[in-house]
């Protein structure tokens, strides 16, 4: 198929970006979206132009590196997958595809479609862990956990930290990302011990970094490649309220 790509080009973080149109021809419907960009880039290199920079790595939908906003949707038109897994059969021959980076104040553009998502690391560093050191832990089966709870924790833990929730949210809110981690640990006995401190620290860090507020539009859930439920946001709200009301000075 032949396509017109309208791609955001920005030389550096400081640079002023603009959209540039590119034509690509004879793209197989079985190629992935990133392979289509590879084809474009290889041509640009040969032609002596600067190839389009984008984040990507595992190309099997789990590392969370790829992050492209395609035709108004993070990770493109298909549901429940990342950009790298999205195949060109989702587009029509002759279509114009608008390709943009994630847009959010805490995710500044580094170059072209690459953005800096270290804000997510900062949120995890604020409390997204159980404070155990290596060694000296009890036997794994000493902590029985109801299967339903373990499964629900796993649902939350499936988050790949790609930032699609932030990109999709009209408020650039990171609530789904933060709540997925808070919820995972809130559901497990290992995480309960620090639950109150954790939720407050992580929410405070999220606010400090300049993410927007959640207005329950649920766009995050619709665009999450791992289809993480907004019920985790509710759980985080609950945890937060409980922590504020009950934690001691």
């Amino acid at each position: 198929m032949d396509l017109t790509l309208k791609i955001w080009r920005q030389a550096s973080a400081e640079g002023k970006g603009k959209f540039v149109n590119y034509q690509v021809q004879n793209i197989s419907a079985d190629a992935s979206f990133l392979e289509m960009l590879d084809i474009l880039n290889e041509r640009l290199v040969v032609e002596g132009e600067d190839p389009v920079a984008f984040d990507h790595d595992c190309r099997e939908g789990i590392c969370g590196a790829c992050s492209i906003y395609i035709n108004g949707r993070p990770h493109g038109p298909d549901r429940g997958i990342t950009t790298c897994q999205m195949h060109m059969r989702n587009f029509k021959d002759g279509e114009t595809i608008v390709i943009e980076p994630w847009r959010a104040k805490p995710f500044p553009v580094i170059k072209d479609l690459m953005v800096d998502r270290s804000a997510f690391d900062a949120i995890i560093q604020a409390g997204g862990y159980v404070s155990v050191s290596t060694g000296g832990v009890p036997d794994a089966n000493a902590i029985p956990i109801p299967k339903r709870k373990a499964d629900e924790a796993m649902d939350a833990a499936a988050c790949i930290g790609c930032g699609a929730c932030v990109a999709a949210c009209k408020n650039a809110s990171a609530m789904l990302f933060v709540s997925a981690k808070v919820s995972q640990f809130a559901l497990l006995p290992q995480g309960r011990l620090e639950a109150r401190e954790r939720v407050q620290k992580m929410v405070a860090k999220m606010d400090e970094l300049g993410f927007g507020n959640c207005t329950n539009t649920y766009a995050c859930e619709a665009e999450c490649p791992k289809e993480i439920s907004v019920s985790h946001i509710a759980r985080m709200n609950r945890e937060f309220l409980g922590a504020k009301l009950l934690s001691e000075k």
Binding site: Y69, G72, E100, R103, K105, A168, N171, A219
Partner: peptide, 12 residues
């Protein structure tokens, strides 16, 4: 929180 808007608005 989103100083630069999207060219193509989302509707998710």
């Amino acid at each position: 929180a989103r100083p630069v808007r999207y060219e193509k608005k989302g509707s998710s």
